[in-house]
Structure formats: structure tokens, C-alpha cells
């Protein structure tokens, strides 16, 4: 036992009826609010705030269904892992420090195990903090991310093969993922079956990414914020207005 802690002497002879007054080391309410201490708190707060702001603003992690916007999600989440335990497919993982994803937060790696979109959404039910929004009651309304055909050069459908594997894996087939046919310009008599993703229906479940037959997938779930474009309001899409 150290004998050096301020204000305490712990000689073996000390007994309960020692008359020497000892003050507990540490802190009193008055001692806490001195100018120097306040300055220390302000300096420490500033330093830790800077570290906080230096955290990655946007990770490319695919989040479980119902996840709030990334910056809110990583702080509302109390990192308890109950969603991980609730997932019947073991889709949800927990981020490690140093992984580039906010440590302790849940995420999904679709290429390994995608979200299978349980209709009762057990992960949202299990979340105690509301980081997975309880307002999500229809799994088809979830937006875990957005599937993007990231590499048209390796997608074999665009080479003229009949693949359609991602199309057939899509839980919202025909809505979130459609096949667009056009003439193969190389042969002039065959069709190209191009997989096209529609962001108004895609939940970002990742089954397309999971199932892509390439060695490295050409279709990936990315975060919506950094993926979606935004059309300037001055554009008038006449033919869409006609269709209405």
C-alpha cells in the first residue's frame, strides 16, 4: 500500500481512536470550483471536443434497419449489443476500435451476411435507446443504405451474359431492382439485361451485394447521403410531368 497519498498516513500503529485528524484526499465541493480547476475543465473540454469533431463524419458502414442518421446514431446508440443478439441471421456485427467505424456501434457486412428483412424487425424491438427508430414498423420502409452498381466494367450482365442473380435475390424484385433491356451493340442481335436500382424502393438490405457472383462484388450497399445526387430545382422533366 503506498504511503505517499496526500494527507493520509497509514502507519501500522494507526488505530481507530487515533486523535490525529486526517482529511480524505481528493476533493471538496468548494475545492472543485477554483479558477485553476475551471480553466482545466475548459481546456480539457476543448481538447476532447476537438478530438470528437475529428471523428469520421460519415462511415461507410451499413447500419441495421431503422438506424438514425449516422451522426445521431453513433451517439444515441449505447453500444449494448442487444440488436446483435436479437438478429436470427447473425447479420449484425459490433465495430472494434480502430476499424474506422464508431467503436461499439452495430453494422452489417452484406458480402458476409446481409439483412434478411424480418417482418417483425427484432433488432429495432431490442434496441433500448431508440438508436434504431421504433417508428419503423414496415421493414420495406427501412433505409440501411442504397445499393449501387459500383462497377459496370466487371458486371457480367453488362458484358452480355444472362446473370440476373442480384435481380432474383432482391426482396423487392421489380421495384427496388429491375432489369432494363437494350440491344447488345457488339452482336447487334442479343440483349443486355442491365440491373438498375431504384432508390425509392431499395432498403439497402444488401442481398444483391451478398449474392453477386463475381470474386469481388460489382454491386454494393453504400450510404445514401454520399451516393444520391440532387437534381437542381430549375430542371423541368417534361416527360415525367406529362406522365402524371
Amino acid at each position: 500500500m503506498p504511503k505517499t497519498t496526500a494527507g493520509i498516513s497509514k502507519e501500522p500503529g494507526n488505530s481507530a481512536d487515533n486523535k490525529v485528524r486526517r482529511k480524505p484526499e481528493g476533493i471538496s465541493r468548494r475545492g472543485f470550483l477554483t479558477a485553476g480547476n475551471l480553466l482545466g475543465i475548459v481546456a480539457g473540454t476543448a481538447a476532447v471536443s476537438l478530438i470528437s469533431l475529428g471523428q469520421p463524419k460519415r462511415s461507410y458502414a451499413q447500419r441495421p434497419p431503422g438506424a438514425l442518421a449516422e451522426m445521431k446514431f453513433i451517439s444515441r446508440c449505447i453500444k449494448c449489443g442487444q440488436c446483435i443478439r436479437s438478429c436470427p441471421y447473425d447479420s449484425i456485427l459490433m465495430a472494434e476500435p480502430g476499424s474506422g467505424i464508431a467503436p461499439g456501434t452495430p453494422y452489417i457486412v452484406s458480402r458476409k451476411i446481409p439483412c434478411y428483412m424480418c417482418p417483425d424487425i427484432p433488432c429495432v424491438a431490442a434496441c433500448p435507446s431508440g438508436a434504431l427508430d421504433k417508428g419503423l414498423t414496415d421493414i420495406n420502409e427501412s433505409r440501411m443504405g442504397l445499393a449501387v452498381l459500383t462497377d459496370r466494367e466487371t458486371c457480367i450482365a453488362l458484358k452480355g451474359f444472362r446473370c440476373e442473380v442480384c435481380y432474383n435475390a432482391c426482396p423487392l424484385i421489380g421495384k427496388a431492382l429491375t432489369l432494363e433491356y437494350w440491344v447488345n451493340p457488339r452482336t447487334g442481335k442479343h440483349s443486355i439485361f442491365e440491373p438498375v436500382i431504384h432508390s425509392d424502393a431499395c432498403t439497402g438490405c444488401g442481398k444483391c451485394e451478398h449474392t453477386c457472383i463475381l470474386d469481388k462484388t460489382a454491386i454494393k450497399v453504400l450510404d445514401i447521403a454520399s451516393t444520391k445526387g440532387l437534381l437542381g430545382s430549375h430542371y423541368r422533366i417534361g416527360w415525367e410531368r406529362e406522365r402524371l
Partner: peptide, 13 residues
Amino acid sequence: IVPIITAVAIYEF
């Protein structure tokens, strides 16, 4: 205090 300023609950990471 830091979470109030930065909206990041940094310590829990």
C-alpha cells in the same frame, strides 16, 4: 460537457 458541444458521445467509444 463534450457531448453537449459536439453532439458526439465520444467517451463511450
